[in-house]
Computed example of a mutant assay.
Amino acid sequence: MASIETDFRAPPARLKIQWGQIATGGTALLILGAMVWVVTQSQSILWAEIPGYLLDPRILSGVVLTLKLTVGAMIFGIVVGCVVAAMAISENLVLRAIAAGFVWWFRGVPLIVQIFLWFNIALFVPRLGPYDINLLVTPAVAGFLALGLHEAANMSEIIRAGLKAVDKGQREAAQALGLKPLQIMRTIILPQAVRLVIPPTGNQAIGMLKASAIVSVIGMRDLLTMAQQIYAANFLVIELLFVASIWYLGITTVAQVGQHYLEKRFAPKGRGN
């Protein structure tokens, strides 16, 4: 008797055309194309001048200073932010009050105001011992302190939230096993908190890079300031702003790629993407 074979394979799924997505995507592309066309057709912008300034030594020196300022202020902000976060979650009311006051001031006052305050600190403290305060707090130091302390206030809240997000039961279980507080923090709390802290920290670093342009108001020779100095002499305002924008976009793109791989590195096994 002949056997009857039954094919239980499911029929191939048909590709569903999402007309709504096609319509919205097409509309967005048309609008973007129209915007690009309008910008590129402007007869007032000398597009051929832009490539020549991308590697101009003055622009490159501004890029280097911007990177130094961003990295330095970010490291300073993370270190101080860790200390403030530890104070904020401590059981000491005085330390918690100091941490709350620090965050309240440096996160609440606009960054540009903080920059001007540090730049004019000599009005409050003319001398520091035998030294003239103006010789100590130069424009570079004023910009660094303003950016670093502002970032420290933001990072302290990010780190505090990451530490508090770890379930208390794990801490209690570790204490029951006889682990010391530093061991619990190093082996149980921090590895989990880092995964939560990295994404917003990456966003803060990118924001810091762009916020560093504000130091141009006190004459620091960062990327934006150098672009302004050049176009003040040749009147190629939009062209030099495009040069600065290209550099900012390039650096932030590299930072975003680094953030992606850093998140992937610290993601739990099987959940990296």
Rank of each mutant, 00 (worst) to 15 (best):
G270A: 01
K180G: 12
F8G: 14
F119M: 06
V125S: 02
V217Y: 05
Q114G: 06
R14G: 14
I89F: 05
M208C: 07
P57I: 03
I50C: 07
L65K: 02
K264Q: 07
P181T: 12
F119A: 06
F235W: 09
N203G: 15
V94G: 00
Q259G: 00
I89N: 03
R107N: 12
E151N: 14
I98E: 07
I112P: 08
K269C: 00
I184Y: 02
P51D: 11
Q41P: 00
N120W: 07
Q114K: 11
I246V: 15
R186Q: 12
M226G: 05
A2F: 05
I121M: 13
I121F: 14
A165H: 04
D222A: 06
V109T: 15
I45L: 10
W247H: 14
I4R: 10
S61N: 13
L128W: 10
M1F: 12
N234I: 08
L65Q: 03
F124L: 14
S156A: 15
A233R: 15
V64E: 01
G162N: 04
P181N: 10
P126Q: 03
P199R: 14
I206L: 05
L29M: 15
G207E: 05
F8V: 10
S44L: 10
S212P: 03
T40W: 09
A140N: 10
L209R: 07
L93E: 12
A227L: 10
H260Q: 12
I238A: 12
L177H: 04
P199A: 11
V137W: 04
G101F: 09
F119L: 05
V166C: 06
A205L: 15
T225A: 11
I17F: 12
A173P: 01
L65P: 00
N203A: 13
I198V: 15
Y231G: 01
N134R: 14
V79I: 14
